[in-house]
């Protein structure tokens, strides 16, 4: 089914007291809330030291992972996050079940609500799917967007912000380059909103013209079509995956040519600051957007991102579920 882009008011994510009720998009969220998510996630990281790697915050609650689109890492870390919060977790791969038998999204949702779920973690190939679901579910069910079409992937952006903050500290001093397939990337959109809201010194987008959105100027970033210029003196390099499955036109001559001009190699990374860090949301196309020696090298934080993903998803799940149940919550 085709779902229209979000038409709900921006404050659907927050209650009247400014507490998180749904986590659908970074856009529209205040800096204080993003900082609170990062602080909360930071304190969840310490749980890994205990014998029992769980806290009882969501004990007796049910989190449903509703994945209409394939995912390994995001789904696994959401599942682990919910389990570390002591929630019961139900994983539904909708792509291969009800919808293929003709059930509508609304009917699927109503059935899941009847099972008394407290949160839906939603991934969908259509932009706006998480907003649509938030508009349809009964009150007291929190919706977490785990990626919708080309629109947003807010927990990925927040785990990237946590990774940057833990290694680089204050955002205002940082130059950050986001490199690659910006056009198809919901991750890049959410990262730009998060970096801007958190006050990053400079955000750069580096891509060939064919992989930049037509309204790239509205994103408020410095745009480079030359990788070496775009990487000059940056503190953070975020590589994006080349999303071959979403390319429906001749946007690139070949993967080899893309790698030659936009691949992050030891040689091109040398244009960034010597202490620059390298990130990638995964899954990586080695030899297409990034050289293995860089992905596995000393400046790479790619595995840290995965660990931080669990902590950020614990923070967002616990804040949204409690936001649905506190006094005054709608």
């Amino acid at each position: 089914m085709q779902i229209c882009p979000p038409a709900l008011p921006g404050d659907v994510q927050l209650d009247e007291q400014g507490r998180l009720r749904h986590f659908l998009d970074i856009q529209g969220l205040p800096r204080a809330l993003l900082t609170d998510i990062l602080d909360t996630a930071d304190s969840f990281r310490g749980i890994g030291d205990a014998q029992v790697k769980k806290v009882p915050l969501l004990r007796g609650r049910t989190v449903v992972n509703l994945f209409f689109e394939n995912s390994t890492r995001t789904r696994a870390t959401f599942e682990l996050a919910a389990k570390r919060l002591s929630a019961d977790v139900l994983n539904l791969d909708i792509g291969t079940s009800s919808s293929s038998k003709g059930e509508t999204l609304r009917d699927t949702l109503f059935n899941l609500e009847a099972m008394q779920a407290d949160a839906f973690v939603v991934r969908h190939s259509d932009s706006g799917a998480a907003h649509f679901i938030a508009s349809q579910v009964t009150p007291h069910v929190a919706i977490i967007n785990a990626g919708d079409g080309r629109h947003a992937h807010p927990t990925q952006a927040m785990l990237d912000m946590l990774t940057i903050r833990r290694h680089k500290g204050e955002f205002s001093n940082l130059k950050v380059a986001i490199v690659g397939d910006i056009l198809h990337s919901r991750v890049a959109r959410s990262q730009v909103h998060a970096l801007k809201t958190l006050g990053a010194g400079e955000v750069r987008l580096v891509a060939p013209l064919t992989l930049l959105p037509s309204q790239v100027d509205a994103m408020g970033c410095r745009v480079f079509t030359n990788l070496r210029q775009g990487l000059k003196d940056v503190d953070v390099v975020i590589m994006l995956r080349l999303q071959k499955e979403r390319m429906d036109g001749a946007l690139l001559p070949s993967e080899g040519e893309f790698y030659r001009y936009y691949g992050l190699t030891r040689e091109t990374l040398a244009y960034a600051r010597p202490d620059a860090v390298v990130m990638h949301p995964g899954p990586m196309n080695r030899g297409v957007e990034i050289e293995s020696a860089v992905a596995d090298g000393p400046q790479s934080l790619i595995m840290d991102q995965v660990t931080n993903g669990i902590a950020v998803r614990m923070a967002v799940l616990s804040m949204a579920v409690s936001g649905q149940t506190q006094k005054g919550a709608a």
């Binding site: 602080d39 909360t40 915050l57 616990s318 409690s322 149940t325 506190q326 006094k327």
Partner: peptide
């Protein structure tokens, strides 16, 4: 937690 949320 379900009344106050997480403490700052």
């Amino acid at each position: 937690f379900y009344h106050q949320g997480l403490a700052p």
